[in-house]
């Protein structure tokens, strides 16, 4: 599948109807989502025929993109039942078989290394400090191959240091810097659209296979 095609399909997905501010529910735009998964597949072979988990899947954009690129088994994890419902109807629409688990990522207990690749657009932790780091810590515990994640560019040094020193990562690389358009979803957004600089990261856990 071509990148443009993937982006087009993702652009047709249903998004949050009533985004929840405390969960920092911003939709993952089709531009960013398609590039994340396309790179994971075409540069690193981390998607097709793999078990892929989407942490904080929201409306399922990243997980479904993995499914479209040939992941064998995709699981979306989210704390919010409404999001999972939208994600599940998106999956049905695309005829992608995707599993979902409602849970709090921070208390998730998964067997080690059955999941090959974790993809995620974690809450950036602007409302709840450190939320993105909690996600990253769990992701690096369960993934056997790679973790792809988006984090604010302003936190780059902190993320690299923490991933390598504390979270079991053997490498942590920024693949590219993207602009994350956060449309005006919430009242506290003063400008119509806020552009946030975001890094697309690839982390490799230690003892990866």
């Amino acid at each position: 599948m071509k990148l443009k095609q993937l982006e087009g399909i993702l652009g047709s997905l249903q998004q949050f109807e009533n985004p929840k501010i405390e969960l920092e529910q911003y939709p993952t735009g089709p531009h960013i989502a398609s590039r994340l998964l396309y790179t994971a597949e075409n540069s690193f072979g981390d998607v097709s025929d793999k078990v892929v988990a989407d942490f904080g899947c929201g409306c399922g954009t990243l997980g479904l993109a993995a499914g479209l690129l040939g992941a064998e088994h995709v699981i979306g994890f989210d704390i919010d039942a409404e999001s999972i419902e939208i994600a599940s109807s998106n999956a049905e629409e695309l005829e992608i078989d995707m599993d979902f688990v409602q849970c709090d990522i921070r208390n998730l207990r998964l067997s080690d290394r059955t999941i090959d690749t974790v993809v995620m657009n974690p809450p950036f932790g602007t409302r709840k400090k450190g939320a993105d780091m909690d996600f990253l810590s769990v992701a690096l515990k369960v993934a056997s191959q790679a973790v792809y994640s988006l984090h604010k560019t302003t936190t780059r040094d902190h993320i690299k240091r923490t991933a390598l020193r504390e979270y079991n990562a053997s490498s942590a690389e920024v693949l590219c810097e993207l602009r994350f358009d956060v449309p005006q979803l919430y009242k506290f957004h003063k400008k119509k659209e806020v552009d946030v600089a975001v890094d697309l990261w690839r982390f490799v856990p230690k003892n990866s296979r």
């Binding site: 088994h73 599993d99 998730l108 067997s111």
Partner: peptide, 21 residues
Amino acid sequence: MRLLTHNMLSSNIKGVTNGFP
């Protein structure tokens, strides 16, 4: 939910030591 997903999930209740399967 497929049994592959079941195969990786454990009970995550505090204090539980053997939550699998």
